[in-house]
Design a protein around this nucleic acid. Structure first.
Lengths: 343, 343
DNA sequence: TTGTACGCGTTATCAC
DNA sequence: GTGATAACGCGTACAA
């Protein structure tokens, strides 16, 4: 039934060479005469050879696999990131084995087990259920993206700068009160620095401000109803004031904008909004949303690049264990759009 | 450096059994005495054994890999679909090797080559650059989703019914004129039937209607400017008429809705909109968009299920070649939301 | 420049 | 119930 696959042996017999020479044809073609190269090339066509990378991996230990663990696809941010990660295939040639963590630590452990069984050379982690200390114990190259990263390498947006940028923008918009709406997260999560940035700027300028922390749940509808509550709260607490709102991400910003639009039919002067991420929804919203642009493509590329460096180091005859952890920061870019007054 | 891995050999020596028995412990545990099972189980803990699936694959030929080729992540539809596909891991245990096709036939051929090299057991194709005849020639189980599928199995939304549902809804909304805005696609693409459905219903009821075909490009901005042009066209051609617009997908519907909102601050009685897909944006839009809901989770599940059946067939000692191609259709579900008048 | 022989970690086929 | 041995397809000393 299953047509027997053509192997190096078949090619060897067909051409009269040995398996080794066939192998060399692929890995060190220069060590063959040009004519012999052609002979083999012809044989490959004739026999319709189909390479078997798994056998290769078993022999040389290099799977060219990178594992990826993503928490969910609820925020456009993650699918965008995955998109960018997958796109690095053209640059680096690594294939990606992707798992959706789903905020379940046991599942994620199981997934990591699977990934290790497939001999991944490195791991990119975006979910945050497993502590970085445990991740580090797996003893394979790891890069974390926007999560607690004490014991592993990471690539993050410069969140503090992002918070500062957003807050400064709202400040320059002459708002009467600045509001930052976010989740109540642990301080070791990189995104926490957005809050710090917000608070620092407000205090530096002596601005009237409020930090509003809520649990937004795990679905759009939960998030929406939570933001509706917050919207009412703000409306009642600051009537007539010009409110500059800095939201945790663009999805939140979009929801808030929609609430306002459905009340006013436009964005009144009383509200100014800034989102975070520059995910697709920021542009696709009823009014293009000003946002702190995470350079997702750059983050993804940097993460893979960082991982590849470490993986390459391990392939050397005398690998140097990594001296110190790398925590790269990517500068966010403020995207001035239509939910703020721009210079 | 790289800690030597623990193999069946090590476990065998440690326990005094042979490699074979260790293998059996994993594959036919019942054939061991319970006490021997425990012995081995203990040894696994002691030695901290980490399985190697690649070696397993080489030996038994079953990679548990499914290849996936997706055109892009521009439409939320695809990331949603990928999400649902990846989520079937819990059900079927297959891992997914994902490539972004990017509308480039040569790239996609290269990707398929890679996938074959990794001994994928089956392939799910969402991109449409490679003709199904060529796909079929690779001689591995294939399921296509929403693309030309003459020579391969497929799972599609019942597009005709979707077109009918949308059109009927607009008809019942007492619109003066029904408009369907779509791309000018080949007739062998499943989505073409949405157009057929639209036209059939319009003709059946003798409705005033127009089919507007455009090239919407490959990015949000291109799509947006194209739809702006269409919007102007419609406005001038049908002033004062109640226009029922059936759009190609929710992204288009959202753009159109935003154009209207930015002019009126609301959805005036003059417009009724229906999208397609029920992708996240339909809900996240300024006004929740009525849409023909593709049951993406169901499509993904059905596709994987169909693939698994074929892959299992091939694993039998005497596999039956597939008698006839399967083209499954998933019934769409009309989502009545706020861009139409609903019963 | 080319070939021999063995190893990679697991499964499958016989035996006992 | 258990074990020896030969695959699986390719890489890599080492030798020639």
């Amino acid at each position: 039934m299953k047509q027997k696959k053509v192997t190096f042996d078949d090619i060897a017999k067909y051409t009269g060479f040995s398996k080794t020479t066939i192998s060399r044809y692929f890995n060190h073609p220069d060590s063959l005469t040009v004519e012999n190269q052609d002979k083999i090339a012809d044989a490959l066509k004739e026999l319709n050879y189909q390479e078997n990378k798994l056998a290769k991996v078993l022999a040389n230990g290099q799977s060219e696999f990178i594992g990826v663990i993503i928490p969910n696809f609820y925020l456009g941010y993650f699918s965008e990131m995955l998109n960018c990660i997958l796109s690095t295939y053209e640059q680096f040639g690594y294939k990606f084995l992707v798992f959706i963590g789903g905020n379940n630590r046991e599942s994620e452990r199981k997934y990591i087990g699977e990934l290790l069984a497939y001999k991944i050379e490195g791991l990119i982690v975006l979910s945050h259920t497993i502590p970085s200390k445990e991740l580090a114990s797996y003893n394979i190259p790891i890069v974390a993206i926007e999560r607690e990263d004490e014991y592993v390498n990471s690539v993050n947006t410069n969140n503090y700068m992002g918070g500062v940028q957003a807050t400064n923008l709202l400040y320059k918009n002459n708002c009467d009160v600045l509001l930052h709406i976010n989740s109540d997260m642990p301080e070791d999560i990189p995104a926490y620095k957005r809050i710090t940035g917000f608070l620092d700027i407000c205090r530096d300028h002596g601005l009237n401000h409020e930090l509003i922390l809520r649990d937004f749940g795990n679905s759009y509808s939960e998030t929406k109803s939570c933001l509706e509550e917050v919207y009412q709260y703000i409306k009642e607490k600051y009537p007539g004031k010009k409110k500059g709102i800095f939201l945790a991400n663009d999805t939140h910003a979009s929801i808030m904008l929609n609430l306002i639009f459905r009340e006013y039919g436009r964005l009144p002067d009383e509200y100014r909004l800034v989102g975070f991420d520059d995910s697709p929804i920021a542009v696709e919203s009823v009014l293009p949303i000003s946002t702190v642009g995470q350079q997702i493509d750059k983050i993804a590329y940097t993460a893979v690049e960082l991982l590849v460096e470490q993986m390459n180091e391990r392939k050397k005859r005398r690998p140097q264990p990594q001296k110190e952890l790398l925590h790269k920061e990517i500068t966010p870019v403020l995207k001035l759009r239509d939910t703020t007054d721009n210079p």
